[in-house]
Design a protein around this nucleic acid. Structure first.
Lengths: 159, 159
DNA sequence: TATTGTTATACTCTATAACTATA
DNA sequence: TATAGTTATAGAGTATAACAATA
């Protein structure tokens, strides 16, 4: 039995024309993808944000280490001019710091400021709070299922 | 042991300053949210699309039944003028059909055209293909874990 | 001469305000 | 007079093309 609509097997997408096949991998792929995207969408919509989505995404890229503008553009799949502008806004808001690469004068290294960390932390807390509210009251057994699934998902998504 | 970075417990977000607590619900919420959002992001980035994200989102809203412009705007969390314009583009591309509500002359009912269904179907197939490729080769046990988790996630996200 | 990044310009998506048509 | 939707106008984000600085 399929819990989510629009199965990928067969040409029919219309309601009522869905084959029953949660036991095949394609069916799992569809249902799992859809539910993940629903989580993502609702988190983005319902966890009130103080920063635009594309800006937050850039901040998140700077968590681990300073990144060049070109790398940022690649990771976010936008052009260099576009990223240049986004970064300029973040620098103006003092969420991101620009430094020159001592080894190559052309390169600009971008890193998070203290305020940038603060924004990132608050945003994360709000998003996690939304998710925590959803999981509230789940049995230990169900929690363990989700824990195991999280490990699996993290593995397969890294492929 | 936490598999994903940036735990929500405690003030520290910096790498290396993460407490170990995958056994609490907050930790699960964080890890699960993050992996769902990663799936969503990679699907949107890597499953090549023939249609812009916000346009696709509107098409998806029209799957079940005709929807008014105002309802569409609410669901997509944009203003009516913005949705009016988005819909105008979809109507011009003949992916969406406009009809008048026989009961109320002010209301515009929007529904999917045949081409709209085609686009939706192709997009869904590409996204599912991406996800299927990730799940390829998973053991039956692991598949069952993900199936159970999908059911659980669908339930809690509906809350 | 090639590469990194910015500036110039145009197009799209979004918003608020003002307008039209219908109830 | 209130509601559903559109048009007018402006503010961002993004793209391509042209430019500046450095390697």
């Amino acid at each position: 039995m399929t819990i989510l609509p629009e199965r990928s097997a067969g040409p029919a997408i219309e309601p009522g024309a869905r084959p029953d096949s949660a036991s095949d991998l394609a069916g799992l792929a569809h249902d799992l993808r859809l539910v993940c995207m629903r989580v993502s969408r609702r988190v983005r919509f319902e966890a009130a944000s103080e920063i635009a989505s594309h800006q937050f995404s850039v901040l998140a890229q700077l968590k681990a280490e300073p990144v060049t503008l070109g790398d940022l553009a690649d990771r976010e799949q936008v052009t260099a001019p576009s990223m240049s502008r986004t970064v300029a806004g973040l620098v103006e808001r003092e969420l991101v710091t620009r430094t020159s690469d001592p080894a190559d004068g052309r390169v600009v290294l971008l890193s998070l400021s203290e305020s940038g960390w603060d924004v990132l932390r608050r945003e994360r807390e709000q998003r996690d709070a939304w998710m925590s509210a959803r999981l509230e009251g789940l049995s230990e057994v169900d929690q363990q299922i989700l824990r195991d699934a999280t490990v699996l998902l993290a593995e397969v998504v890294s492929r």
